[in-house]
């Protein structure tokens, strides 16, 4: 593991990506324990629409709430939703992909066609559909985003699993009489860790964006809880008077996605068997 960490720090975009994600995680943690400069929900009535200053680092909004504090809580909200939804998507996608590959033929056909149907919808549209049925909220967002990204994980797992299934070491395990769960966990899943790790980081970036999009449309996190998408939506009528209300949430979303993407790229480079062989 230390070898992986060292390779990460040597990789230029890995370093930057890791720094950004660490920053976000710290902000999210502080947001959870409430260590924000100001109360994100408190209305400073005399300080409405103040530009960034020493007191209000990123300015205040129409109701006089501190943008910086609200951003920290918004990051917390986004991170929780992104990690939960991607976690669920990874779990379900991996199980579905593995079983489809292992059982083959009929089950493969049924499971993967269902995944194809889900994959055929644009992500945000499918999420909208689910929320329209169940109603908005944090847990609904998690569920919707998880469902949207499950087929991607199923695809990512099924391909390599199909080829691993044909490998000699799986045949060898079968001649020993190893149980199916043992073969699936030790021979298939263990060899899928690398592609999965890359996919998880990239999916986190998409989940962040999808969550922001849903909140922007008013279907994700509900006010007064701050969220990045919601703040962006609130800022759109004040674009000229208070540009900081738009710029800072937008930058926060962008930087977060960049962070996860850079980390994903670095992971892909580091875990690529071809680069590994060169090291060995």
């Amino acid at each position: 593991m230390s070898k992986l960490a060292r390779a990460f720090l040597r990789h230029p975009s890995g370093r930057i990506g890791l720094a950004i994600i660490s920053l976000y995680l710290i902000a999210a943690l502080l947001g959870i324990v409430g260590l924000t400069p100001h109360d994100p929900l408190k209305l400073f009535a005399i300080d409405r629409l103040k530009p960034p200053s020493a007191t209000y680092w990123f300015g205040t909004d129409l109701l006089g709430r501190d943008t910086f504090s609200r951003l920290m809580v918004g990051i917390k909200q986004s991170m929780i939703i992104a990690f939960c939804s991607v976690g669920l998507a990874t779990l379900f996608g991996t199980v579905i992909g593995l079983l489809a590959a292992w059982w083959g033929t009929l089950w493969d056909g049924i499971l993967m066609r269902i995944m194809d149907v889900l994959l055929a919808f644009p992500a945000i549209l499918l999420a909208l559909l689910i929320i329209a049925i169940v109603g908005p909220g944090t847990s609904t967002s998690v569920a919707a985003i998880a469902i949207v990204y499950t087929p991607i994980f199923a695809r990512v797992v099924r391909g390599p699993a199909l080829s691993l299934k044909q490998r000699d070491f799986v045949d060898a395990a079968r001649t020993f009489g190893s149980s199916q769960p043992y073969i699936l966990s030790h021979h298939l899943l263990l060899n899928l860790v690398a592609p999965l790790a890359v996919q998880v980081t990239l999916a986190l970036a998409w989940a962040l964006l999808t969550e922001a999009g849903l909140s922007f449309l008013g279907l994700g996190t509900q006010p007064p809880t701050p969220s990045l998408g919601l703040m962006l939506a609130e800022s759109k009528n004040l674009m000229t008077q208070a540009p900081w209300l738009m710029i800072f949430p937008a930058l926060t979303i962008m930087l977060g996605i960049l962070g996860f993407n850079l980390t994903g790229d670095a992971l892909r480079d580091i875990l690529d068997p071809r680069t590994q062989r060169r090291e060995a």
């Binding site: 000699d168 070491f169 060898a172 395990a173 020993f176 149980s179 043992y182 030790h186 021979h187 860790v193």
Partner: peptide, 29 residues
Amino acid sequence: IQMVFQDPFASLNPRLNVEALMAEPAIAN
């Protein structure tokens, strides 16, 4: 009846260490 395969690079799972590889047939039984 047990089998040794042609390609020793393909018949050993690269992610398991020798102990896990050697233990597998015993654990399976």
